[in-house]
């Protein structure tokens, strides 16, 4: 076994185990951390496929930002997971249909690639797909890309507008006024004669 295939099987095994633990573990924080590990192993496999930009983007965006915020929220929530598990049976039929569909699609992809009709990435001529991807995104597909960015921006603005709709008791600070404050504005020294003269 070459070192490359050894690396692949190692990453693949970790990925499968981590993905299984995401859904089987009881503690939500542990589940989020297993998800981080599975993202990381997937990034490792992508690097083996020479898709280094995608791999690094996965680590940067999902592991470095999205999952941090996830953890942030999950750690502070007090979720009753036993209560959520009570509806397991009622959700089972829907979940089974979705699961079978996903399995079917994955089987299609795998069979398709065996037959040779599936789309495979052509080997990049320069060995670096970062600049090739950049050229595609910002030259060829620049308008779809910009539209996607604007849609995201609108979503952010909407979320902020919704949360700030009803906040009245906000204490706003004006840093320039804070900086301008002098001791004389806040403290007044008063000379008082003492009531009982010393001695």
């Amino acid at each position: 076994m070459s070192f490359q295939s050894f690396t692949f099987y190692a990453f693949a095994a970790i990925l499968v185990i981590a993905a299984l633990r995401v859904v089987t573990t009881r503690n939500p924080v542990h589940a989020a951390l297993w998800l981080v590990l599975s993202f990381f192993s997937a990034a490792g496999i992508w690097i083996l496929l020479e898709a280094e930009f995608l791999a690094i983007a996965l680590v940067l965006v999902y592991v470095g930002a999205v999952m941090v915020l996830f953890l942030f929220v999950v750690m502070m929530l007090d979720v009753n997971f036993e209560g959520l598990r009570q509806h397991f049976r009622s959700y089972l039929p829907v979940a089974a249909v979705v699961g079978v569909l996903v399995l079917f699609e994955m089987a299609l992809v795998i069979i398709g690639s065996r037959v040779g009709s599936a789309v495979t990435a052509p080997p990049s001529p320069t060995g670096s797909n970062t600049s090739a991807l950049g050229r595609l995104l910002y030259v060829e597909y620049v308008y779809p890309f910009e539209i996607a960015a604007v849609v995201l921006l609108v979503a952010i603005v909407a979320a902020i507008a919704l949360t700030h709709r009803k906040r009245r008791a906000v204490k706003h600070q004006d840093p320039s006024r804070q900086v301008k404050v002098r001791a004389a504005d806040r403290v007044r020294l008063v000379r008082l004669p003492s009531e009982h003269p010393p001695g």
Partner: peptide, 25 residues
């Protein structure tokens, strides 16, 4: 000497926060 070196650095430095978060939790 990888081509996406700067991105790799960004990705790695964004991972450091996990140690802090987990230690606190």
């Amino acid at each position: 000497n990888i081509n996406a070196g700067l991105l790799y650095i960004l990705a790695m430095s964004s991972l450091g926060v996990y140690g802090v978060i987990l230690a606190g939790w």
